[in-house]
Design a protein around this nucleic acid. Structure first.
Lengths: 185, 185
DNA sequence: ACTTTTAGTGTACACTTGCTCATTAATTAT
DNA sequence: ATAATTAATGAGCAAGTGTACACTAAAAGT
């Protein structure tokens, strides 16, 4: 099933308009009306596709999450397990990923945005960790894997939050080294 | 300076109305109009005090955060350091705190709510951890304390998120025991 | 090329939002 | 008790929201 060209054009126009507006205002203060005005799309058309500005952003979000999954999952497999003590910093790509999409993550970590985006990010990282645990601790360790992976995934995101709060002052490589040292405490 | 009785009454009425509405709808789908209708408060009065529904909720939030700070900070001081290997589960009160205010935390952890509430919670836990680190690791360890505390605080919140996701199936005591085991992995 | 399908448009309506301001009324200070 | 203060009200306004529906036009299938 091919995508209707009209739909494609409409969505592109809206996405581009959103990116422009996001440069100087928060997601929640962008009205449907001004977005459509800028995108030259009828307001009714917007509602047919999205319903609210957040949903449009979410679509973009998911494409970026896909990048995190595809580009960064593979390297893990060929390296030491993710959270062991003899962790190789270069295997952890999440900070590089965030650095690469920095303008985007400034939005994701901004206070006014709904918690759902954080959860989408959390889910992805948790999944990466979960795979890692499954591979390296074999079948059964005596702890709930959902809980263990939630703990470790969110710990890393804690560093990302603090990184954001410090306005991304450190480089991604710095953050990797920092993670390794934190794991040794 | 005494609080004007009229102000007190208005805020009370609004807080109660909000609690009622929150029982069967999300924070973001509560309109100012319906809130004021239920509270018998003029819409203009609401805007004079809060500006948006979120700010009203935030006021309530902060009173609960105060409880987390006051009731749970003290016990830490007389126990082993918080995140050492010989941690006593009973010293960690955060899960009990969440359990106690469970209906409230169902809102805080719900997807549609702004990230700011999560940050308020994060800040408090980070502060607890930070104090703990300062006391037990003395003056200088070779790592950025902001980062280390962010890591550890958010790790614990990761467990809370997963707990919420599993609909608080475990008891707070279970969560404490789980934390101890996670720390030993 | 022609028909069918379906996305997008324009308009309309009832409602909410955020804000302002003169008026009313409750509370505080004397 | 009375005056001074200030919070709350009600009304009004321009703008945005969410939804509906007949229409127009672009794209897909043949």
């Amino acid at each position: 099933m091919k995508v209707d060209l009209r739909v494609y054009k409409t969505k592109e126009a809206l996405r581009k308009a959103l990116m422009i507006l996001l440069k100087d205002k928060g997601l929640n203060s962008i009205s449907v009306t001004e977005l459509c005005r800028l995108a030259n799309v009828n307001r009714g058309t917007f509602y047919a596709h999205y319903g609210q500005v957040e949903n449009l952003f979410e679509e973009y979000f998911k494409s970026i999450m896909k990048d995190l999954g595809e580009s960064y999952l593979e390297p893990y497999r060929h390296e030491q397990n993710l959270l062991s003590k003899n962790l190789n910093p270069s295997t952890i790509r999440i900070f590089h990923h965030i650095e690469h999409y920095q303008p985007f993550y400034r939005i994701v970590f901004s206070k006014t945005v709904p918690l759902s985006y954080y959860y989408l990010l959390f889910d992805h990282v948790q999944q990466l960790i979960r795979n890692d645990i499954r591979e390296h601790y074999a079948s059964g360790i005596d702890i709930d894997i959902a809980m263990l992976s939630a703990y470790q995934a969110n710990a890393i995101l804690g560093l990302a939050i603090e990184w954001h709060r410090q306005d991304f002052a450190q480089s991604a490589a710095d953050m990797n080294r920092l993670l390794v040292r934190v794991l040794r405490v």
